[in-house]
Simulated assay, not measured.
Amino acid sequence: MGGEFGIQNPVFADVAASSELTRGLDGTWLLSGRFALARILRKLMGQGVNHVHLPAYLCDSVLEPVRHLGLEMSFYPIRDNLSADPDPPAGSAVLLIHYFGQINPAAADLRGQAGDDFYLIEDASQALLTDWRSEVTEQTYYLISPRKFGPVPLGGWCNIKLDSAGSNTGSSIAYSSLAARLIKGAYIDDGEGPIIPRTEKFYLDAFEAVEKVLSNKSETDILPNWVVSMVAGVDWSEVAAARLTNLEVLIANLSNRFVAPVSTFAPSEIPLGYPILSENRDELRRNLASRRIFCPIHWPLPAEVSSAQFPEAYSLSEKIMTLPLDQRYKIEDMVQLAENVLELS
C-alpha cells in the first residue's frame, strides 16, 4: 500500500478534457509542477520581481526553480492548522500552498490583498481535485501537478499561455516514467503473486532516475500531447469520490487517536492523503513498511529553512506522516490500515 502509481489499462482522451483539472483556465502543460512554478517566476521576473516569499513548511523541490533562477527568497511561518502567515516584502511574489487537499485558510485574505504590494502564486498540486480557482487577476497565478493523484507519467500546469511553449524534448523522460509505471502496474496487478525484490528495485530505481532528470532539465520542455491525453483519460470524478469515501472510513476507524493538522475537510475538498502526527513517527513508519504499508513524509525541510526561526515547521516535519487513502484502495483496505496504525502506535 502506498508509493508511486502504477499504470494499468491507460485511457487516452481528447486533450481538451484536461480542462476539468485546469478549471477551464488557459495555460500550458509542462513536464512537472516545478517547471510550472519556474515559468510563473520567469514571467514575474520580467515584471520586476526578484524576491519570493515562501512558507517555511515546504518541499525541497519547490526551491529548485527559485535557486535556478537566482531569486532572493525569504520564508514565513505557518500556523498549527497549516494556515499561511506571510509578511511579504513589497513587490515580491508570495507562494501559497494548499496542503493535503484543503484550501489554505489564509487564501481568502491573501487573494484580496494580491496586487496591492505583491503577486500571489497558488500551488494547488496537493489540492488538484478541490475547486481551487478563485477570481483570476493579473496578480494571481496557479500551478498544479496530477502525479500524486492518479496514474499519469508526468505533468505540471500553470495558467500562463505561452506563445511558443518551448522544446518538445520531454518525450524520452515521459516514456521512461511510463515504462516504470507500466511495470509496477503489471507487478501489483498480481495481488496473490510473490514479492520479487528485483522487479521492485527496477521500478523504484527508474522513478528515482526520472526525478534526477527532472531536476536538471530545462523548464521550457513542454508535456507531450500523448501524456496530456493520458491525463485527460483518467476518470477524475471517480478518483475524487473514492478518496472521499476512504477518508471518511479511515478517520472513523482511527478513533481520534491522533492529532491531525488538517482535522476536517469540507465536502468539496478532495484529500491527497490523511496526515497524522506521531511522536514516534519514524519507528511507526518503519514498522508499517515491514507490513508493506508505505507512508510518505510531507516533508523533510530544505536546508534554507532555519529550525531556530521556524520551530513549528520543524516540529511538524519531524512528526507528520501521510496515510494513503487513494482510489487504489477499498473500504476494507482503510479498515485494515487503521488497525495496523493503531496496533503499531
Rank of each mutant, 00 (worst) to 15 (best):
E4Q: 09
N9T: 09
S18Y: 05
S19M: 07
L21R: 06
G24M: 08
G24P: 07
G27H: 02
G27M: 00
T28N: 13
L30D: 01
R34V: 09
A36T: 04
L37V: 05
I40L: 11
L41T: 04
R42V: 12
L44R: 02
G46F: 05
A56Q: 06
C59V: 04
D60E: 15
S61R: 05
L63G: 08
L63W: 07
E64D: 11
V66D: 05
V66M: 07
R67W: 12
S74T: 11
P77N: 01
L82A: 08
S83D: 08
A84D: 01
D85W: 08
D87S: 14
D87G: 02
S92M: 14
V94T: 14
L95Q: 07
H98Y: 07
F100G: 01
P105M: 14
P105T: 12
G112P: 00
F118W: 06
Y119D: 08
I121F: 01
E135F: 12
Q139C: 12
Q139N: 15
Y142L: 10
S145R: 10
P146T: 02
F149N: 12
F149K: 11
G155V: 08
W157H: 02
W157C: 05
I160F: 05
S167V: 03
S171Q: 00
I173D: 08
Y175T: 04
Y175D: 06
S177C: 04
A180H: 02
R181Y: 05
Y187N: 02
G191A: 07
G193R: 11
I195T: 11
T199S: 11
L204Q: 13
L204M: 01
D205S: 15
A206T: 02
A209H: 07
V210G: 01
E211T: 04
S215W: 03
S215E: 15
K217M: 12
K217F: 11
S218D: 15
L223Y: 02
V227P: 01
M230F: 01
G233I: 07
V234T: 00
S237G: 15
V239H: 03
A241F: 03
A241P: 02
A241W: 02
L244R: 13
T245Y: 02
N246V: 13
V249T: 14
A252G: 00
L254N: 14
R257W: 03
R257A: 15
P261S: 09
F265P: 00
A266H: 03
P267F: 06
P271T: 05
P271M: 04
L272S: 13
S278Q: 10
N280W: 03
D282V: 06
D282F: 10
L284G: 12
R286H: 09
R286W: 02
N287Q: 14
L288A: 06
L288W: 08
R292Q: 14
I293V: 15
C295E: 01
H298K: 07
P300A: 12
L301S: 07
A303M: 10
V305F: 07
Q309D: 14
A313S: 15
L325Y: 01
L325F: 05
D326R: 00
Q327F: 04
R328V: 13
I331H: 06
E332D: 14
Q336A: 15
L337K: 05
E339L: 03
E339V: 02
N340G: 00
N340W: 13
L342P: 01
S345T: 07
